[in-house]
C-alpha cells in the first residue's frame, strides 16, 4: 500500500533516511534520525525521530518507537508513537499501542491494548501532579 515515494528520496542532505526493501532482512537495533520505510523483514527494535512506514509485504518482529507510523504490513511488538498511528486495511498489529491518535481502517487486525495519550506526558504524570500542587500552595 505504501510505495517508496519521492519524498523518501527528496531529502538528500538531511537526516539519515532508511529504506528496507523486500529483498533484505535486518536484525538488531535500528535507530535512525530520519524516516524509515520497511518493505522487508526486521527483527529487534526500531527507533526513529520521524515517520515509520511499514509496507504491505513487510514483517516486523520488534518494539517500535516513532513520531508517526503508517502500518500496512505485519507488526509483532509494542508500538509507541508520539503523534498519529494509522493501521491500513492490510495491516496487522499484535502488541500494545501507545499514541496520541489512532486510525484503524476496516479489515485491519489489532490484537493488543491501546493507550490514547500523549506519549511525552505518560512518562511524567507524578511530576506534573506535583507541580500542580506546588502551584496551588504558592497561590495561597
Amino acid at each position: 500500500m505504501f510505495k517508496i515515494s519521492d519524498e523518501a528520496y527528496a531529502n538528500g542532505n538531511g537526516a539519515e533516511d532508511t529504506i528496507i526493501g523486500s529483498s533484505i532482512k535486518v536484525e538488531g537495533d535500528l535507530v535512525s534520525s530520519g524516516n524509515i520505510v520497511v518493505e522487508g523483514e526486521v527483527t529487534g527494535t526500531i527507533k526513529t525521530e520521524k515517520t515509520l512506514k511499514v509496507g504491505e509485504g513487510a514483517k516486523i518482529v520488534a518494539n517500535v518507537s516513532a513520531r508517526e507510523a503508517y502500518i500496512s504490513g505485519k507488526v509483532q511488538g509494542n508500538i509507541e508513537v508520539q503523534d498519529k498511528i494509522e493501521l491500513a486495511s492490510t495491516g496487522e498489529i499484535n502488541g500494545d499501542i501507545q499514541s496520541k491518535s489512532l486510525i484503524i481502517l476496516a479489515g485491519a487486525v489489532f490484537n493488543g491494548k491501546s493507550t490514547m495519550a500523549d506519549v511525552r506526558t505518560i512518562a511524567e504524570p507524578e511530576q506534573e501532579q506535583g507541580n500542580a500542587e506546588n502551584d496551588y500552595e504558592s497561590e495561597d
Binding site: S23, I24, K25, V26, E27, G28, L30, V31
Partner: peptide
C-alpha cells in the same frame, strides 16, 4: 552498521 545487521536475500 551501528547496532544492526543487514542480510541480503536471494533476489539481491
Amino acid at each position: 552498521k551501528d547496532e544492526y545487521k543487514i542480510i541480503p536475500g536471494v533476489t539481491c
